[in-house]
Amino acid sequence: MSKVKYYYDSESLSYRKIERKKRTTFKYIMLFLLTSFICAFGIVTIAGKFIESPKEKALKRELQNMEFQYQLLDIKMSEAEAVLANVAERDNNLYRVYFEANPIPDAQRKAGFGGINRYKQFEGYDNSKLIIESNKRLDVLQKQIVVQSKSLDEIALLAEEKEKLLASIPAIQPVSNEDLTRMASGYGMRSDPFTKVRKMHKGMDFTAPRGTPVYASGDGVVIRADSRASGYGKHIRINHGFGYVSLYAHLYKYNVRKNQKVKRGDIIGFVGSTGRSQAPHLHYEIKKDGVHINPINFYYGSLTAEEFSKLLEHASMENQSLD
């Protein structure tokens, strides 16, 4: 119950009851409500700046976690970039050098992406710079991986070809040292045993007893095994690929047939004296791209340094050939 208020009336010399008008009461009520609303709004606004709601707390934690994850991603990308840079260096300075391939320029390995803005969708956010930079590095890293992958595919192909080449080159002596009587004649100008005229001897003569095994000096395919070539008698020719062809002449008999694949060290025939021959021996020739070359340069696969020196000494003597 509200208190009744009075005022002193000096004219009537008495106290009179204060009568409040309804209009004034309504004005006071509205003023009170307005003041209360303003105070409440101010309190809420101020509290909002210092007190976080559960939703705001959750969003803030999510944002902090995202920034942490991007920091981890940045570290991982740095590590991946370092590893890839090491692989690229070995690729250019080791693998590609060994297999005689041109190095890949850095401009090609580390090229970015031109043209349209690929990262427009990441603009306008508080962390736009971080997100855009991370995506740029990731895209460049992915491109470098593609370039390196193609390079390694190329190296693998070159290695396969190199392996085939090393296996195919005529690299061993066609007659074993244990079976040799002597190295009768080398490559170069020699005296013909029949005419005694000096002429070019396009191979090497190895004397050995009749029936001594003759070995394929490299992997290849037999393209001839017949006696239809003048002077060679029974002979075998092997196509080693890469432009190399070896010839084994004056054989006693064959151990292979035409179109047969052979491996280095396979017995392909036996020493004889067929054709234009003065005594049992093997006449051995090598051609590269159709041109005769000195077989002495291709015995690294079967001779020691001392054996090779002796062979080189005998091959250099301008004696008489046996065919």
Rank of each mutant, 00 (worst) to 15 (best):
L157C: 10
V140L: 10
A156T: 15
I145Q: 15
G114K: 09
Q148W: 10
K143H: 12
P105L: 06
E163T: 11
G115M: 05
P103L: 01
G114S: 10
R137V: 07
V140P: 00
D126E: 14
I155A: 05
N135M: 05
P105N: 00
E160F: 09
V140T: 08
E161L: 13
E100Y: 11
E161Q: 13
V147P: 00
D126Y: 04
V140H: 04
V147I: 15
Q121A: 05
V140W: 03
K136W: 09
I116K: 11
I155R: 04
L138F: 12
A107M: 07
L158G: 06
P103E: 01
E100I: 04
K120V: 08
E123C: 08
E163S: 14
L157F: 12
E133T: 09
Q144M: 14
I145E: 15
L152T: 12
K110D: 15
N102H: 08
A111E: 10
E133D: 13
N102F: 06
V140I: 14
K164I: 08
L138N: 14
V146L: 15
K110W: 11
K164N: 13
R137C: 07
I116F: 15
P103Y: 02
G112V: 01
P103I: 03
G114P: 02
K110M: 13
S151F: 02
K164H: 09
Y119G: 00
S134V: 05
D139Q: 06
D139V: 05
E160I: 06
V140Y: 02
V147C: 06
V147G: 04
E163D: 13
K120S: 14
R137Y: 05
G115H: 04
N117F: 06
P103D: 00
S149N: 13
E100R: 15
G124P: 00
I145Y: 14
L152C: 12
Q108Y: 06
L141C: 08
D126P: 04
A156I: 15
Q142C: 08
E154Q: 14
P103Q: 01
K164T: 04
G115I: 09
N102V: 06
I132T: 03
Y119P: 02
I155Q: 03
A156P: 03
I131C: 00
I132L: 07
Q144A: 10
E123Q: 11
L157K: 13
I155G: 03
V147T: 06
V146N: 11
S134W: 02
Y119R: 01
L138W: 09
D139M: 07
Q121H: 07
N117P: 04
F122S: 01
Q108L: 06
I145W: 13
Y125M: 07
Y125E: 08
Q108K: 11
K129R: 10
K143Q: 11
N135I: 01
Q142K: 15
A101C: 12
K136T: 05
D126S: 12
K129G: 07
F113T: 02
E123I: 03
I131G: 02
K150F: 12
K120H: 12
S134I: 08
N117L: 10
L138R: 13
E154L: 09
L152F: 15
L138T: 13
R137N: 11
N135F: 00
E100D: 14
E133R: 01
L130I: 07
R137W: 01
S134E: 09
A111C: 03
I132K: 00
P103M: 02
Q121S: 08
N127L: 06
K129W: 02
K150R: 14
G124H: 02
E154K: 12
N135E: 06
